[in-house]
Structure formats: structure tokens, C-alpha cells
């Protein structure tokens, strides 16, 4: 390993199997395995997670460096907003009681049919 500062790793934790990995902060570490160990101790001493990700910061391409890449959603793009669908309650129930995808579909088509 070369001398100098350790690389920065961004840390993500997943609270349960259905949750997204959520960014919680960053740490420095000598290598990915140590980064995982440090992430566990720095961010997850008091809470349970089912998974931890560490991502080398320089592996992340950020849009903020090139403002042209940043989306500008204005009133004129209303046609892109998915209004008219009301699936949210179904998904909430799906998450809450582990229905199968078929049951969700049945429920949705049943209500509409």
C-alpha cells in the first residue's frame, strides 16, 4: 500500500430486505474490507441492518460537476408526471404483509374490473 491518505468510501445501509440502501455518510479506509468493518462500527453500532455497502467515492459520477446533466422539471413537463394511477395503497399493503405479486395484481384488476 502506498503512503498517504486512505481513500474515501461512501457508506450505505439497508434496514430490511425490502428497503433501498440508504446513504448514511462516508469514512476513510485502507481497503474495501476494512471500509466495511469501519462502516459497521461508525454507523451501525446501535441499529440493525441486513446489508452494508461501501463504495469508493471516486467510482461515483456526479451530475453536479456538469450542470447540463441536471434535470429541470418545470410546469411544461407535466405530461411526464404519472397522474391518474393510484397504485400507492396497493404497494403499501404489499410491503406491509408480504403479498405475492400475483395477489397485488389480482387486487388491482379486481377493483378496476
Amino acid at each position: 500500500m502506498s503512503q498517504g491518505e486512505y481513500p474515501v468510501y461512501e457508506v450505505f445501509g439497508q434496514k430490511d430486505r425490502l428497503a433501498f440502501h440508504t446513504h448514511v455518510g462516508s469514512i476513510r479506509a485502507a481497503n474495501p474490507e476494512m471500509a466495511l468493518q469501519m462502516a459497521r462500527e461508525a454507523f451501525f453500532r446501535r441499529e440493525t441492518v441486513v446489508d452494508i455497502w461501501v463504495v469508493p467515492q471516486d467510482a461515483i459520477y456526479s451530475a453536479a460537476q456538469e450542470p447540463a446533466y441536471l434535470p429541470q422539471i418545470g410546469e411544461d413537463k407535466k405530461y411526464r408526471l404519472p397522474s391518474g394511477y393510484d397504485n400507492a395503497p396497493h404497494w403499501k399493503r404489499f410491503k406491509a404483509r408480504a403479498m405475492s405479486i400475483e395477489e397485488v395484481a389480482e387486487e388491482m384488476t379486481g377493483k378496476r374490473g
Binding site: 486512505y6 476513510r28 469501519m38 462500527e41 461508525a42
Partner: peptide
């Protein structure tokens, strides 16, 4: 030797 290790070491 490092901030991260300080946390981990104390926790252990």
C-alpha cells in the same frame, strides 16, 4: 492511529 479505528477499537 485513525479516527475510524478509534471508533471501532472503542466499540470492540
Amino acid at each position: 492511529p485513525e479516527l475510524e479505528e478509534d471508533l471501532a477499537f472503542s466499540s470492540i
